[in-house]
């Protein structure tokens, strides 16, 4: 299996970037993770992951959207690339395939 190696956080961030569509940048990704999953992730960790994903070619980015809160600084906005979407699909497929192979819970009794 030719690899889309994704770490757990990488996978999560990749999904969130996909969900946020055009509006994904460091702070919004962290917020979304907090809202959706209730998990607090350090902003610097998110930056690291986003950078790594970009290196792997799963996301692409452009600068834009300066706001006053940021002192007039622009955001780096991320969006899914084609290979990023393929990676998500791949990961989902793998997960599903693996899940399907789980033996049903009922069989446990016979072995007991």
């Amino acid at each position: 299996m030719k690899g889309y190696h994704l770490g757990e956080l990488e996978e999560l961030v990749l999904l969130i970037v996909g969900i946020l569509d055009q509006e994904a940048y460091g702070v919004s990704v962290a917020e979304e993770i907090k809202n959706q999953i209730g998990r607090k992730v350090n902003i610097s960790a998110i930056h690291t992951v986003l950078n790594r994903l970009e290196e792997k070619g799963f996301v692409k980015s452009h600068m834009g959207g300066a706001t006053e809160e940021r002192g007039g600084r622009r955001k780096r906005l991320f969006s899914l690339s084609a290979s990023g979407r393929a990676a998500i699909n791949e990961v989902k497929l793998v997960r599903n395939r693996l899940y399907d192979q789980l033996p049903p819970l009922a069989l446990d009794f016979s072995n007991g």
Binding site: V27, H47, G71, R74, K75, R76
Partner: peptide, 16 residues
């Protein structure tokens, strides 16, 4: 090349 996004995010979180 990283300064702008990092500083911006840090500021944004600060005000939040």
């Amino acid at each position: 090349e990283r300064l702008e996004q990092i500083q911006g995010d840090a500021y944004e979180i600060f005000y939040m």
